[in-house]
Design a protein around this nucleic acid. Structure first.
Length: 493
RNA sequence: CGGGGUGUAGCGCAGUUGGUAGCGUGCGUCGUUCGGGACGACGAGGUCGCAAGUUCGAAUCUUGUCACCCCGACCA
């Protein structure tokens, strides 16, 4: 298996296939019987669960609570916000009937034509409409605000072409939906959640991201402003990894959600929504993986350490079992998750390769020599280096090593991103450099026409207008018109 | 929806001019092994995507059909 993987490197033209192979071989997910839908396997789901837990904690810390809204949305709800329906109509699954019956010719079941729904139900592509229809009943006074709900859910978007984790017909995500009395508060909330996402990406996933604002053409359907975090993959393509939207009063107006203000006026509510999905799994895989397989950050690995015994007979295995048990206990006491794999149906070499493929951050191997010397062999997944370490105080060494690996893979990804980011002054230069992949920082006149032209001619899009970094003005590389600041271009997933 | 490709054992594949269904891996049992994907022996595992046609005979030829994959178009 590893050999097949080695034939394709992360920078090759068949990156997409290399990626999909890796997802399957590392046991993260597989295609299902339903077109475009994905089965997330236990190992992959364990990573997602960790992501969920950390994100959920961060949401709670910033004052949010969880709730759950229905999977089905009446068709009429979706059409209330004009831009919103425009953006999602083309990819919605629709429920038209509520019953099956045995087919008259006995060949199975058919949809019962008598069970046609009066109003069709849409399988949610996102929940703004059903939630705002609900919030309307929750909000009367400024005293009811803010409402800060999040839901963990699945959504369905009937995409033409799908890719495991990056774009699937059904995906898991969280969506936060908040309602506020003032514009300032709503904008601050949208910005705050963008910061939460960026922090999560960088500190937990070890994925460096650019925070920024989307241009009008890339904005969420129904939003006033869309904030985004953009990451760079190893093949030079960008990945939108999370979004936070300032929705203005668009949904409040569409669903007639008003409140009595302190001053006695009747005002429309200000809104935000924000979400990250299982697409983050794709970002994680494509940012860190190498030719040997996955590389997982210690904070998200289902288990951080795997211990492999190397033995000649049952007696030796028993000695190793005992020795390892002591180490496992000490590691667990420090909060390190460990798997001891003493299964006897696989050889050590096989296990080494397998756990590399699965991205386990640290591998420890203990054999006869180690028993004699009171040592253990420690191998790092990020650097693929090995060293022999004394068992005394090994738990603290490992604990420190995990932190070092977490920091190192972030730095590696950060350096890669910086090396592949270029500043460009002319459009001719842009057309040349965009072929190399990576981000390009260039001036743009702010018009949708120029943006569309660039996309048409180079397939590159404006990933975002960065919130941080160089803010000096200049002139548009295409039209020569004034530009307030450089914007971030790339080809994207 | 356009262009290309693939459907044969759990997985990955071969199958020439139409003539007994194969290989690798995995799986089961036994033995030797075990510091980077071990080896030997024996064994189990098949509606060749589906349907029709040509033929004495079809995995192979013809027609139809279905599914999946890749490249585009599309995509908070």
């Amino acid at each position: 298996m590893a050999k097949e993987l080695k034939e394709l490197t992360p920078r090759s033209v068949s990156y997409s296939q290399w990626y999909q192979d890796l997802v399957i071989k590392a046991d993260l997910a597989e295609n299902s019987a339903v077109r475009g839908c994905m089965v997330i396997k236990p190992y992959g789901y364990a990573i997602w669960e960790k992501m969920q837990r950390y994100l959920d904690d961060m949401f709670k810390e910033t004052g949010h609570v969880n709730a759950y809204f229905p999977l089905f949305i009446p068709k009429s709800f979706l059409s209330k916000e004009a831009d919103h329906v425009e953006g999602f109509a083309k990819e919605c699954a629709v429920v038209t009937h509520y019953r099956l019956k045995n087919s008259p010719d006995g060949s199975g079941v058919v949809v019962d034509p008598d069970a046609k729904l009066e109003e069709e139900l849409i399988v949610r592509p996102t929940s703004e409409t059903i939630i705002w229809n609900t919030y309307k009943n929750w909000i009367q006074s400024y005293r009811d605000l803010p409402i800060m709900c999040n839901q963990w859910a699945n959504v369905v978007r009937w995409e033409m072409r799908t890719r495991l984790f990056l774009r699937t017909a059904e995906f898991l995500w969280q969506e936060g939906h908040t309602a506020h009395a003032t514009q300032e508060e709503a904008v601050a909330e949208a910005r705050q959640m963008l910061d939460v996402y960026a922090k999560f990406a960088e500190e937990f996933m070890a994925v460096p991201v650019h925070k920024g604002v989307k241009s009008e053409s890339e904005r969420f359907a129904g939003a006033v402003d869309t904030y985004t975090i953009e990451a760079m993959m190893q093949d030079g393509k960008a990945l939108q990894s999370g979004t936070s939207h300032f929705l203005g009063q668009n949904f409040a107006k569409a669903f007639d959600v008003t409140f009595a203000s302190k001053e006695g006026t009747r005002d429309y509510v200000w809104a935000t929504s924000w979400g990250v999905s299982t697409r983050l799994m794709g970002a994680l895989i494509m940012t860190h993986s190498d030719d040997n397989g996955l590389v997982l950050p210690p904070k998200l690995a289902p288990f951080q350490v795997v211990i492999v015994p190397i033995y000649r007979n049952d007696e030796q295995l028993a000695q190793i079992n005992e020795k390892v048990a002591g180490i496992v206990t000490k590691l667990k006491a420090l909060g390190v998750s460990v798997k001891y794999d003493n299964a006897d149906n696989k050889k050590p070499g096989w296990k080494f390769s397998e756990y590399e493929l699965k991205g386990v951050p640290v591998r420890m191997a203990m054999g006869g020599r180690d028993l004699e010397n009171n040592t253990v062999e420690v191998a790092r997944r990020d650097t693929l280096t090995k060293e022999t370490i004394s068992c005394d105080n090994i738990e603290n060494y490992i604990k420190g090593l995990l932190d070092e690996i977490q920091a190192n893979i972030y730095k590696k990804a950060y350096d890669f991103r910086e090396e592949t980011t270029q500043k460009v002054e002319t459009y001719a230069e842009f057309k040349e450099k965009i072929e190399e992949g990576g981000f390009i920082l260039a001036h743009w006149d702010g018009t949708a026409e120029t943006e569309a032209l660039i996309k048409e001619e180079t397939k590159a899009t404006i990933r975002c207008i960065p919130l941080e970094g160089d803010k000096t003005s200049g002139v548009c590389m295409v039209t020569g018109k004034p530009s307030a600041q450089r914007v971030l271009f790339a080809r994207a997933y």
